[in-house]
Simulated assay, not measured.
Amino acid sequence: MMTQLVPLYDKKYTCAMCENSFTTKKVRSRFVKVLNFDTDFAPLYADGFENPNFYYINVCPDCGYSFTDDFSSYFPPGAKQVIQDKICNQWVPHDYGAERTIQDALNTFKLAAYSSMLKKEKHIVTAGLYIRLAWLYRSTENLDQELRFLKLSLKEYTESYSTGDYKGTQVSELRLMYLIGELSRRIGNTQDAVRFFSKVIEKQRQSVEPQIIQIAKDRWQEMREDKVVSGS
């Protein structure tokens, strides 16, 4: 008899803080179906399919240190002690290794964002956690929290852009500039939005990402039309 494939499988990790081994659920790719993407790249998943963001974060059940596959293995001097004091010593053992609710997912992202900040992880990594938190809140229509985390992710993306710590990651300079423009637009900072969309469009001759140039032009056009409509 063939065994029925289930959406979730166990993946084993070793905690970089306390060296404890644990398993956590991940989603098999065949159970993920993206219908389309929002203007800030938030994926919209088909009904009846899994949202892999629920399982993006790995939380050590023993010490509470939380991380993703994007975290570096390097801890700056003193970082482990700070994490020990602020997270591990306060941790009430909790296992996020089973199926997760949306609330579980939100909790795990907040834990990972805190771990990332204390560890002084790259700005690009922390930004990715904040934007995913914003997406999760968007899916629950909690606009206040969505806005809060969009602002935090914008701050981290801007830091990443100015320090260049996105280099060598999956986020290209063009994508990063577009995101800074789009998040600025979403929080109502029109000047920065226009500035960064312009930077993207200026690169159209040498770009290998024509789709990003196009969506920047679309956003720019929308903003111009909004301006005409609002009469400013």
Rank of each mutant, 00 (worst) to 15 (best):
A46E: 15
A46Y: 02
A46H: 09
D47M: 13
D47I: 08
D47Q: 15
D47C: 07
D47L: 13
G48T: 11
G48L: 12
F49L: 04
F49C: 08
E50D: 08
N51T: 08
N51Y: 07
N51R: 10
P52F: 09
P52M: 08
P52T: 07
N53C: 09
N53R: 11
F54V: 08
Y55A: 06
Y55E: 03
Y55V: 02
Y55S: 04
Y56H: 14
I57C: 06
I57Q: 04
N58P: 00
N58Q: 12
V59L: 07
V59N: 07
C60A: 07
C60S: 07
P61G: 06
P61W: 11
P61C: 08
P61S: 03
D62R: 15
D62L: 12
D62V: 11
C63A: 08
C63R: 05
C63V: 06
C63D: 06
G64I: 00
G64E: 00
G64P: 01
Y65P: 01
Y65I: 00
Y65H: 02
S66D: 07
S66A: 15
F67W: 10
F67A: 10
T68Y: 01
T68D: 05
T68M: 10
D69G: 08
D69K: 12
D70I: 02
D70T: 09
D70F: 11
F71R: 01
F71M: 05
S72N: 11
S72E: 11
S72A: 10
S72H: 05
S72T: 15
S72V: 03
S73C: 05
S73R: 14
Y74D: 14
Y74I: 14
Y74V: 14
Y74T: 13
F75A: 05
F75V: 06
F75M: 10
F75N: 06
P76D: 03
P76A: 10
P76F: 00
P77V: 09
P77R: 12
P77F: 13
P77T: 09
A79R: 05
A79T: 00
A79L: 09
A79I: 07
A79Q: 03
A79F: 10
A79H: 07
K80Y: 00
K80D: 01
Q81P: 00
Q81S: 13
Q81V: 12
Q81W: 04
V82W: 00
Q84L: 12
D85I: 04
D85H: 11
D85C: 02
D85N: 15
K86A: 10
K86V: 08
K86Y: 08
I87Y: 00
C88A: 15
C88N: 05
N89H: 09
N89R: 13
N89W: 09
N89F: 08
N89D: 14
Q90F: 06
Q90R: 08
W91R: 02
V92R: 13
P93M: 08
P93V: 11
H94G: 01
D95P: 04
D95F: 06
D95H: 07
Y96Q: 01
Y96G: 01
Y96H: 04
G97M: 05
G97P: 03
A98E: 14
A98G: 15
A98K: 15
E99P: 01
R100M: 09
R100Q: 09
R100T: 03
